[in-house]
């Protein structure tokens, strides 16, 4: 599962995209919903937890937390940006 990063999430991760394993040989829990993905990412990059208003898009559409995701979905993290 590849995740496109925008705004400050790109700076936090240090790259424009992020790969999330979709099958785990380590026994780590694989995210099945947007909410689980948020938790998963927050564990890996604690600074992401600070973002109270981080929008998540699945297949180019804004997604609610309960939306189910799977390996072939295209996901994007879109925090608000403020510069002008």
């Amino acid at each position: 599962m590849t995740i496109l990063l925008f705004g400050i999430t790109k700076d936090i991760v240090g790259a424009p995209t992020l790969s999330v394993p979709t099958s785990s040989i380590t026994g780590k829990k694989i995210p099945k919903t947007v909410k689980e993905l948020r938790t998963f990412l927050g564990n890996t990059y604690p600074e992401l937890n600070k973002l109270s208003s981080l929008a998540v898009a699945v297949n180019n559409n804004y997604a609610e937390d309960d939306q189910i995701i799977n390996s072939y979905d295209e996901i994007a993290l879109i925090p608000p940006v403020s510069g002008g």
């Binding site: 705004g7 973002l51 109270s52 208003s53 929008a55 879109i78 608000p80 940006v81 403020s82 510069g83």
Partner: peptide
């Protein structure tokens, strides 16, 4: 509808910090 609430100053940089 995209961002229901204003982010705090700590969470996203404002202005010229970026």
């Amino acid at each position: 509808c995209l961002y229901p609430n204003m982010p705090s100053v700590e969470e996203v940089p404002n202005c010229s910090e970026n």
